[in-house]
Design a protein around this nucleic acid. Structure first.
Lengths: 337, 337
DNA sequence: CAAATCAAGTTAAACGATTAAGTAAAAAGT
DNA sequence: ACTTTTTACTTAATCGTTTAACTTGATTTG
């Protein structure tokens, strides 16, 4: 409410002097500076961001586009974890985050890019299920600083969970425990799935294990009902698998129920593994063996990279950063003798 | 990037005319209006929010303060659910949401209120674990339009999950199934806890059931390790409870593990119930009996109320809105004969 | 000691939009 | 035919900050 003008009046100096004093320019005397700052504090001065943004065209705002298929990705453990960490790092650097959306405004609806321009975001972070969405692509092709999460796009900085090494570690672990008949119910769409899937095949091949097509199935992520169904189908096969890898921890819940209903024990009769390392997986009985994705690190690095891209456009070399997850050894994968 | 001035040049009219045309004022001729709009579209015009905000002091931005003790509340199922729904409704009305924080900016750190003023939020929504925080209180006492979630503050609009009826329904359900020795491990702090606890006592009393003090314990919310420990203590009592109510679904996981480790069966040997209705609870075996809080409705109503307060300050009567949850009958509470 | 440098300001324009107040021409009223 | 009203604009001020360019008096320099 108090503006530079109010302060300038009280101090008997010009508005410019006040502005420069508060921004610590070095052409203002030290004592004047201190006096102005004191008055500013007393008046409860708060800079007007709109005015500042208008002049400098910097809002210190970052737009985030975290889109799950149905929801905003907030109720998606992995996204929520990444976002949380992204937010903390961004705020630490003086940036606030706002969600990008393409809802209708008073005058019709705007695309993601239009919305971002309208809000004047200094940069945007994108984590999506569907990067092939035309509205997402438009954003990727724009002039805005962008960081993508779990997706590599031409000439843009990408921070990705290392699904190749994650899946390799998990598969290796399972193979080492003597499993030969390993089923993989994988998620649908996205580069994430592709990476995991090829890593799965590559690793089993290294162990000289052949995976029949009937063992590899596709379901949407986080759909416990579908995995329940598919698990039953897998168990009905003439030669059922001895271990089932699920697309994610939550989806594993459904599979585990199917297994339990048949009176099979985990891991004695059949082994299961998940992916994500959600908190609840830690409290399953038996504790779920899974790959914990480092959401903390992913969000943190993504924010840092984006901000450095915003603040030093030249110095940042386009790069793709991979963040390793870690195998969480639960008790859901047994050893075959 | 294209501004009103650019459009005005192309169209050969004044900037004011362009502004009024785009805002559908009725003192601009219909054909001129259409022409201007067409040119604006061709130039890819996007209004500059900063400039507009500077002039009108309306940002169409809402600040949200969702604070869990450790994190930002994003990884908290209940908060995330409410936030997600709040966000959707707000965006539908043309408002964007930004997180309020009190991280350091370039010049030291700002309080929640200072941050809100700095960003020029038109209103704020608060959902907190700790409403007694001085920074939160400052926000509540400010002149900004505020809606609180699950907390009633003097003269402010509050949207609350109906914990009284929720806990009543759950307790009644348990009592009806013949349980007399009911333990309640409740959460710590907040009005939410107080409401649930008093509703628990009131309902058991109505059923003529006395609850020994040893049956009522306090733990932090969402702490499965603590509930694991306390569950063991409860089971070690000379007269252990026949049913344990947990502070929330997630915390119930810990308790269930303690029970299973002792070789006790749910619900044959002991019954358990949660609170929240998180998705994972639906896939527990046996399915968890719990109270599903209507996060969808809570977020939606909160956004609607806040926006109507912003847009029609006078017309809104201060009110407290209660949103009922619903009992989810799982299979974790047995019938005593 | 005059010229050059420096310190500590001030002036004024600009960012892009909104809007009250003014104006000129056309339409309506009498 | 002259006044009044209406229509369709334009002018100009304003929101709060930033910043390039200028000023003025003091200090240093050759």
């Amino acid at each position: 409410m108090a503006s530079l003008k109010d302060i300038s009046k009280v101090c008997g100096v010009s508005v410019a002097t006040v502005s420069k004093a508060l921004n610590d320019h070095n052409d203002i005397g030290e004592d004047t500076k201190q006096y102005i700052k004191k008055v500013a504090r007393e008046l409860g001065y708060s800079p007007n961001l709109a005015a500042r943004a208008l002049k400098t065209s910097k809002t210190h705002g970052i737009g985030v586009l975290f889109v799950d298929e149905a929801r905003s990705g907030l109720t998606h453990d992995y996204f929520a974890g990444v976002l949380d960490s992204f937010k903390r790092m961004a705020e630490k650097c003086g940036y606030d985050i706002t969600f990008i959306n393409s809802s209708k405004n008073r005058a019709g609806s705007m695309s993601y890019l239009e919305h971002s321009r309208y809000r004047g975001f200094d940069g945007v972070a994108i984590a999506c299920i569907d990067f092939s969405d035309a509205r997402v692509e438009e954003l990727l092709l724009s002039e805005l600083p962008v960081v993508t999460i779990d997706y590599v796009f031409n000439n843009r900085i990408a921070v990705c969970s290392d699904n190749v090494s994650g899946m390799r570690d998990l598969t290796e672990y399972i193979c080492r425990r003597g499993h030969q008949r390993i089923a993989y119910i994988h998620g649908a769409g996205s580069a994430v799935t592709t990476n995991r899937l090829s890593s799965f095949y590559k690793t089993t091949e290294q162990f000289g294990i052949e995976i029949p097509d009937a063992y590899v199935r596709e379901v949407p992520y986080r759909d416990a009902d579908k995995t329940y169904k598919i698990t039953n189908e897998l168990l009905d096969l003439p030669a059922p698998p001895t271990c089932i890898i699920y697309p994610d921890d939550f989806a594993a819940f459904g599979g585990i129920n199917a297994i339990r209903e048949r009176g099979l024990r985990i891991p004695e009769d059949i082994s299961v593994a998940g992916y994500d390392g959600i908190l609840a997986a830690r409290y399953l009985e038996p504790r779920l063996t899974t790959v914990q994705q480092d959401t903390e690190q992913i969000g943190c690095v993504a924010a840092r990279e984006l901000i450095s891209l915003i603040e030093r456009p030249k110095s940042t070399i386009i790069e793709q950063i991979s963040v390793k997850g870690s195998l969480v050894e639960g008790a859901s994968v047994g050893t075959l003798t």
